[in-house]
Design a protein around this nucleic acid. Structure first.
Length: 303
DNA sequence: AACCCTACCAACCGCATCAGG
DNA sequence: GCCTGATGCGGTTGGTAGGGT
């Protein structure tokens, strides 16, 4: 036995909404709110619509501050980055793009962006560029890309810079007391903010912009949870820094420092290979490391 | 002008989860 | 703890507009 339908399907109107229906629904909700009960709403409003249909119409079309139309490059990048890291969790992605609805983003992805990504992937692979860390820093615009600056004690993140010095890198440390094999860890939530704290003292000693920093002894590497990846950064005594995907263990994007030059994966939209795999396998959540399966914590409230 | 194809997007459907009794 | 109705989410469908032949 299946579950009971949410409404009497024989008596509800389906298909496109008329301007009159829109006006009725908008007027009612603006006046009275949803009342926390979408099922009962159509009757109160005087609409022959299913409650779910009303909810969808409101959330995707009528609700204030909805942004329709062209997606910007920045939005493209955010979508791609997030898709690469969390898969097709459109409501979460939508929560990072004010004014955009999950439905909108989903449609945009399925009709345009996915093809764009595939086209980019099909184009001849560009050779990794050799560039100084400073130039990487300067060219880095993606909100989800983590970058490092090879100046004495500075690391850089596109959303804010912070200073970090360990004795490995600079020989001294002015801001925190870190041992030679200190470990630092950064967590970034969905490309929006990143906090560091000193895990030895448990102090948020150098929160710089939206970064915080945790330091632990005994480990010679670091972990970044970025919007794209969980990154590992390994340090050794020769000042080698290496980014790798901590989830898969594979090195991604960055290679060793060589003669003061660094190689950067020429990737602008997150990890294309990963996106390609996601598209290909239709497996959207394999590498979801930011969320557990309990959806409660990810739920996004619209109203 | 008629037909076909493709892209786009609003809306639907079914399932998972939540929350209250 | 179980049951049931409500809600939220993501996949999919179907209608339509626009361009090409």
């Amino acid at each position: 036995m299946g579950r009971a339908p949410c409404c009497d399907k024989a008596n509800v109107k389906k298909g496109p909404w008329s301007p009159e229906e829109d006006a009725k629904l908008r007027e009612y909700i603006e006046k009275h709110g949803t009342g926390g009960n979408w099922i009962a709403l159509p009757q109160k409003v005087g609409l022959k619509r299913c409650g779910k249909s009303c909810r969808l119409r409101w959330l995707n079309y009528l609700r204030p501050n909805i942004k329709h139309g062209q997606f910007s490059d920045v939005e493209d990048k955010i979508i791609c980055s997030l898709f690469a890291s969390i898969g097709s969790r459109w409501s979460i992605i939508a929560s990072q793009l004010p004014g955009r609805t999950d439905n909108d983003i989903k449609n945009y992805w399925n009709t345009k962006l996915k093809k764009k990504m595939m086209a980019m992937n099909a184009s001849p692979q560009r050779k990794p560029q050799q560039m100084t860390l400073l130039s990487i820093l300067q060219s880095s615009t993606s909100s989800s890309t983590l970058s490092f600056r090879d100046s004495n004690n500075s690391y850089y993140h596109p959303q804010g810079s912070f200073s970090y010095s360990s004795s490995l890198l600079s020989g001294n440390n002015s801001s925190v007391s870190a041992s030679a094999d200190s470990f630092f860890q950064a967590q970034e939530s969905l490309g929006v903010k990143c906090q560091f704290k000193d895990s030895i003292s448990n102090n948020s000693t150098f929160v710089c912009n939206n970064l915080s920093h945790a330091m632990e002894p005994e480990f010679g590497d670091a972990t970044f949870v970025g919007a794209n990846h969980l990154y590992s950064v390994a340090e050794d005594t020769t000042h080698k820094l290496m980014f790798s995907n901590a989830a898969s263990g594979s090195v991604s994007g960055w290679t060793d420092k060589q003669n003061g030059l660094w190689e950067q994966n020429p990737l602008d939209y997150g990890d294309l290979e990963e996106i390609k795999q996601l598209i290909g396998t239709n497996n959207s959540c394999n590498n979801n490391f930011l969320f557990d399966d309990k959806k409660t914590e990810e739920r996004v409230s619209y109203y």
